Amino acid sequence: MTLFEIIALAIIQGLTEFLPISSSAHLILPAAVLGWENQGLAFDVAVHVGSLMAVMIYFRQDILQMTTAFLTRGFSKNQTADSKLAWFVVVGTIPVVIAGFFLKSYIETDARSAAVIAVTTIVFGLLLWYADATAKLQKTLEQLNLRQSIIIGLAQMLAIIPGTSRSGITMTAGLMLGLNRESAARFSFLLSIPTILGAGLFATKDLLEAETAVDWSALIYGAGFSFVSAYLCIYLFLSWISRIGMLPFVIYRLLLGAVLVAFLLW
Score class of each variant (00 low, 15 high):
residue 193 I to N: 07
residue 88 F to Q: 10
residue 175 L to P: 04
residue 183 S to I: 03
residue 164 T to H: 03
residue 179 L to P: 02
residue 126 L to N: 09
residue 96 V to P: 00
residue 182 E to A: 14
residue 183 S to M: 01
residue 188 S to F: 04
residue 192 S to G: 15
residue 92 G to L: 09
residue 83 S to T: 11
residue 104 K to M: 00
residue 117 I to A: 10
residue 98 I to W: 00
residue 111 A to P: 00
residue 116 V to E: 02
residue 188 S to N: 07
residue 88 F to W: 13
residue 136 K to H: 12
residue 166 R to G: 01
residue 102 F to I: 05
residue 136 K to T: 15
residue 83 S to P: 10
residue 172 T to I: 03
residue 147 R to T: 13
residue 154 L to S: 13
residue 182 E to P: 01
residue 196 I to C: 08
residue 97 V to G: 09
residue 89 V to M: 11
residue 96 V to Y: 00
residue 126 L to M: 14
residue 183 S to P: 02
residue 110 D to K: 14
residue 161 I to K: 06
residue 118 A to W: 01
residue 127 L to N: 08
residue 152 I to P: 04
residue 91 V to Q: 01
residue 85 L to P: 09
residue 101 F to A: 11
residue 144 L to T: 07
residue 132 D to S: 09
residue 165 S to V: 00
residue 90 V to K: 05
residue 181 R to L: 03
residue 143 Q to A: 14
residue 159 A to M: 04
residue 167 S to Y: 02
residue 198 G to R: 07
residue 138 Q to T: 14
residue 89 V to K: 10
residue 142 E to P: 02
residue 83 S to G: 11
residue 129 W to N: 13
residue 136 K to N: 11
residue 195 T to Q: 06
residue 198 G to W: 04
residue 128 L to S: 06
residue 169 I to T: 10
residue 88 F to N: 02
residue 112 R to F: 05
residue 97 V to Q: 00
residue 128 L to R: 04
residue 100 G to S: 02
residue 175 L to K: 09
residue 118 A to L: 03
residue 134 T to W: 10
residue 140 T to P: 00
residue 98 I to C: 03
residue 106 Y to K: 14
residue 174 G to A: 11
